[in-house]
């Protein structure tokens, strides 16, 4: 398997506060990795550095062997590093189809065109329709985004990411805010994605994590404290102390 993303000794400090502390890991083609950790562990901060939204203080990020630590966001996206957001970020004045088509057109270098729509051009149309039906929201193509239920918005968020044909897809809590009984639909959608893509998923919902991940990274106070299979993570005392303990307590209480 080819290594697609390599994070080397990544650190980020805000003043005296170290929010990312010497984090190193790799993602290879086909990886299904979950990044977990208690609230405030620095998960989203880490993702923001991967996507280029936030500059790391130290360390390197390699995308398919190329150093993108200082590369601007569009360059990383062109390199195949795509992310979604914890809170849905959609183009709310447009329809579902337009949201996905924009990503398709951008990837294919069509968004500089200034004359007439290419939304219905067969190659573009096939692609956005394909992505929408893969995620099970094909019937909503013509619906304005503002009329979608929240679960559908989350799926559209995934669809936009997927339309970019990512090599590395970073999903920041894809099931956040989705009613618990609907989260399997999200997982199902992720399951249908191409096996070539390396997926890093940040998630709070442990059921989802254990169903999705082949490998789990545990972050606490900005540092990676454990890396292993879901079964190993469950058994590990340090992880339990930092995170799962609270989770188990919370589950018992509910």
């Amino acid at each position: 398997m080819t290594t697609l993303l390599e994070v080397q000794h990544l650190s980020k400090s805000f003043g005296g506060l170290r929010v990312t502390d010497d984090v190193s890991f790799t993602l290879a083609s086909g990886d299904r990795v979950a990044l977990i950790g208690p609230n405030g562990a620095g998960k989203t901060t880490l993702v923001n550095q991967l996507s280029g939204d936030l500059a790391p203080s130290d360390g390197r990020i390699l995308l398919a062997g190329e150093d993108v630590t200082k590369a601007p966001i569009p360059e990383r996206v062109r390199g195949g590093l795509v992310r979604t957001f914890q809170v849905t970020r959609l183009f709310t004045s447009l329809t579902v189809a337009e949201n996905v088509a924009l990503a398709v057109m951008q990837r294919r270098g069509l968004t500089r065109r200034m004359f007439s729509s290419v939304l219905d051009r067969s190659d573009v149309r096939d692609e956005w329709q394909g992505v929408l039906s893969l995620l099970g929201i094909g019937h909503l193509a013509a619906t304005p985004v503002t009329k979608l239920a929240y679960g559908q918005q989350r799926l559209l968020d995934l669809a936009i990411g997927l339309a970019m044909k990512p090599r590395v897809l970073v999903l920041d809590e894809p099931a956040a805010g989705v009613p618990h009984d609907e989260s399997p639909r999200i997982l199902e959608a992720i399951g249908r994605m191409s096996p070539e893509i390396a997926i890093l998923m940040i998630e709070h919902d442990m059921d989802l994590v254990f169903k999705f991940a082949k490998r789990v990274l545990v972050l606490a106070n900005g540092a990676l404290i454990f890396e292993g299979t879901p079964a190993e993570v469950k058994e590990n005392d340090a992880v339990r102390a930092a995170y799962l303990g609270n989770y188990a307590d919370a589950r018992r209480a509910s």
């Binding site: 939204d53 996206v77 957001f85 183009f91 004045s93 924009l102 057109m105 968004t111 065109r113 729509s117």
Partner: peptide
């Protein structure tokens, strides 16, 4: 109706997201 203008509307809606699909 062009892709260019559609992208401008998307920029108005959510600038960060347009950057995250690779737009300068």
């Amino acid at each position: 109706r062009s892709p260019f203008a559609l992208m401008c509307r998307a920029i108005k809606d959510d600038t960060l997201r347009t950057r995250m699909i690779g737009v300068s």
